[in-house]
């Protein structure tokens, strides 16, 4: 029994949310109810689900519904879905594989389910049935991730940019990121780069105040807008998103610092419209230029590719369920 982002809005989901450290305790409490022998509670930002093994299916459903309705009103309860037997197994397997996630195929859910199960196990809330079911679900999750392309490719512009940076530089540890224009998208891309290890950040913007605010937030340094070209020598990644009508970074500016850079690779991310970086910059051998169209196109193709894999994943899940039934 449970609810997720497809069946309930956030204001309802937050009523059912269980804090991460209380998942085991709640699962244990549910096993005190009549007919419920085993239980696992999963709670993430997009879902709250209760998995139970009951001696009597119908009684189990009634008892569980009654228990949850103690703390929630009728309107909230109307968002809950119920699944039994093979349908519940199929739901869990799909969940672990990321097929029910907001971002199709995302991998975080696998760890979240594993952690919820571990807590229930440690609290003594699981025995034979749920232990077998959850162990099987993890095996199915691994099989599907290995044999399909459900998690392949980044699905957001920020993640596409970071994945490309890692394909160019390997680990981003020690990489230097330069931000031209302190917009929101630049901030998100820079944050993603920093979260993956980029250690140096330079921010430049026409308004020094905004540049300073962003630099302070991300622990970087500010460079005046009229002298940022000097910082290009050190940069590995440049993220540009100014509102300038003309390109702010031209091919000849890069040409002039190539020798000083010792021909190191330079990844240019242009998320501005009109574009900030002259297209000819991409013709320079060690320069990789991606504008917003290219990034969005890659994100869309990854989404399409993942969607195409759903049918294959469902077939594999059905096959696994046939084997255990």
């Amino acid at each position: 029994m449970g609810l997720n982002h497809e069946t309930a809005p956030v204001e309802v989901r937050e009523h059912f949310a269980v804090s991460e450290d209380k998942l085991g305790a709640m699962a244990s409490k549910l096993t005190e109810l009549t007919t419920i022998a085993e239980s696992v509670v999963i709670s993430t930002c997009n879902r709250m689900e209760v998995y139970v093994a009951a001696e009597d299916r119908q009684v189990g459903l009634e008892v569980l519904t009654k228990h949850l309705s103690k703390d929630h009103n009728e309107a909230d309860m109307s968002h809950l879905y119920q699944k039994c037997g093979d349908e519940a197994k199929k739901h869990l397997f799909a969940l672990v594989c990321g097929l029910n996630s907001m971002v199709l195929g995302e991998t975080e859910i696998f760890g979240q389910v594993k952690s919820a199960y571990k807590q229930a196990l440690e609290a003594g809330a699981t025995k034979g049935v749920l232990n077998r079911l959850f162990q099987k679900s993890f095996a199915v999750g691994k099989r599907i991730r290995t044999n399909t392309r459900i998690q392949m490719g980044a699905t957001s512009v920020g993640n596409v940019a970071v994945d490309l940076a890692e394909k160019i530089f390997g680990k981003l540890n020690g990489s230097h990121v330069m931000i031209i224009g302190a917009g929101e998208t630049s901030r998100l891309v820079a944050q993603s780069m920093i979260s993956r290890g980029a250690s140096e950040l330079t921010v430049t913007n026409r308004s020094m105040e905004r540049a300073k605010a962003l630099a302070d937030e991300l622990n970087g340094e500010v460079v005046p807008f009229d002298s940022w070209q000097d910082a290009l020598v050190k940069a590995d990644v440049v993220v540009s998103s100014t509102g300038a009508p003309e390109p702010v970074l031209r091919a000849n500016q890069i040409e002039s610092v190539r020798r000083m850079r010792k021909f190191r690779p330079l990844f240019l991310i242009d998320i501005a419209v009109p574009r900030d970086i002259e297209a000819q910059a991409g013709d320079i051998e060690e320069v990789y230029l991606y504008d917003i169209d290219k990034l969005q196109q890659l994100a869309s193709s990854a989404k399409e590719s993942r969607a195409k894999q759903v049918e294959l994943c469902e077939q594999m899940i059905a096959e696994e369920i046939r084997q255990i039934s």
């Binding site: 392949m152 490719g153 490309l164 890692e166 394909k167 160019i168 530089f169 390997g170 690779p265 991409g282 990789y288 991606y290 290219k294 196109q297 890659l298 193709s301 990854a302 590719s305």
Partner: peptide
């Protein structure tokens, strides 16, 4: 990388350019 042709299995398996 230059042609933004990143959806292939080969691209996914190739080591980073700098390495």
């Amino acid at each position: 990388l230059k042609e933004a042709h990143t959806g292939t299995g080969l691209f996914a398996n190739l080591p980073p350019a700098r390495d």
